[in-house]
Design a protein around this nucleic acid. Sequence first.
DNA 1: TTCGACACAAATAT
DNA 2: GATATTTGTGTCGA
Length: 573
Amino acid sequence: MNISEEKWSIQQSQVPPSPHHPHSVMSPQMSGMPMQPFPYDGPAAQGQLHSQIYVPIATQTPSTPRPTSSPSNTNTSNPASDRKVIDNRPTFTTTSFHTTPFQAGAVRKRRTDTLGFSQDVGPFFSPTQQHHNIYSTDRTLSYKLRINSKVDRGFFLADNDWTCYRRNYFQISSAFSILSTTHHTMNESDIPCLLEVDGQFHNISQFLLGITARVSNSDKKIELVQHTPKRDKGPQMVPVPKPIRPGGNLNLSSVGSNSNIVTFERIQFKTATANNGKRRAAQQYYVVMVDLYAQTENGEQIRVATSTSAPLVVRGRSPGHYADNHDRYNPMSMNPAFPNDRHMGFPHPQGPGGAPIMTQDFGGASFPGPYNQYPPFPGFPPVNGGPMRNDALLMMPNGQAPQFHPQHPHQQYMVQGISEGENPNPDMYSNANMDSNVVNNSHNQKMHDIHMEGVTTASAPHSAFSNFESLQIQTPGTGPNAAPEYEGFHMYHNDNHPTSNTSAHEGYNSDNEHHSNGLNHMNGRQTRQDSSSEHNNSSQINGDKSGHDSKITNGNNNNTNYRIGKTENTDKL
DNA sequence: TTCGACACAAATAT
DNA sequence: GATATTTGTGTCGA
């Protein structure tokens, strides 16, 4: 048994293992599977032609081991791993622990996995919604934007909802790619793009990427705050859009500079969702929106693309409060054998090894559950929240019947790993559940990632995400780029430091971890950012102190500040 | 019930 | 192994 497995066994001893919490062994990528170029015949976009998509060949770098969500991580050479195993022992010595009624199951969580990498996963992101057309400077090529995002920490699955605590940090890393419709290469440092807004073409001087939050299925903005390491003693800021270059690959630990990856660290929701844990009250959800802006030569910043997270629950109180209060009304889901898994009563769709499977689109069928404020979803989100990347689908038989969950009307977020440009297998897009819509041989042109990385998919106009909430976002002017994508949720951090990838939820692939956050133990620790990452981002955190007091009173800071003059066709910063 | 503040202690970095 | 830093979260009052 390797170190991770040892940890795994410790945790599993606390909570009955759930068959719905498969391990990351399902994920070849998580095991460092090299990625190869593959031909992809999916439709690029309306009026565009299918093409071969090149994806990065991810090489395993011993010096920078890639994180894995699998408990069967075999790397035991890292001294830190040994320490972490020790640290993983259940801790029963804290004062707070003894004051709680949850001692029996208490298992302290580690902040990082055995490699110092994040094993955690977070809420999935929707297909990229492109709001404006982007063209080459000579206007002969239409480009498509794709945003890849991942949540590195802070979230766990509770009741199949992606959940976090308002007071806890989460972190979002994003990158984006520009897809060309023809064989075309360009200098990554250049942005030879034209932005079309209301029929007018503007040169794009740079791109920026920002995050905001709002109430799911509503336009109500939710304030995000960003802290310094000083936390309460330091200033609180609103995460502001940061310059970003295309071509970032969140799966790579680091390739040169990170100017093509933006990370927002120490982010918190200013407010919690309503009705957390209440019975017979509809759970409110938030979503995080990752917005890509194009700055024109005159300095105008226009939102050109958006990717939206899965619905999120933000708990406002300490985890202990929810330990015995997680039975939000759901008369069908509770299974007394698994008091912490209210979905044990349902047969989650699973593939070999118990991994949840990707299910198909429901074709617009209305969601049958009580919370139908969300569009239909094709099945359960990953209960484990673990390494369920879309590549795991490759190991799953086709045609598994989707399952509804009456309590979770929102989209199933099982394809978090479909980080555009990271999955080598085209089958995932031509799965029996989606293929008819994805593969479109009417397209003859080839689509390439301009940067030849980070892109694997073309559009899936009627994909399993076609009902995803974010697709409700008005995207006028999208034109040929309107087709939905499968956004990637990436497991790997983006910078050099092997420990830089935080891991709030290495146990998302663990039953115990799943339940432990606020359910079975107190003082659960989640991963912190390492110092190198701290330094990397200190400037961005501290560099924008002006105008920000310790308290943020503008509940709509982000959008108020950065979406001035938004219209149907223009969404400017 | 939520939120802000304070405090404690664990996890992790150095 | 000691120390410093970071962060999860218990607690309390508003």
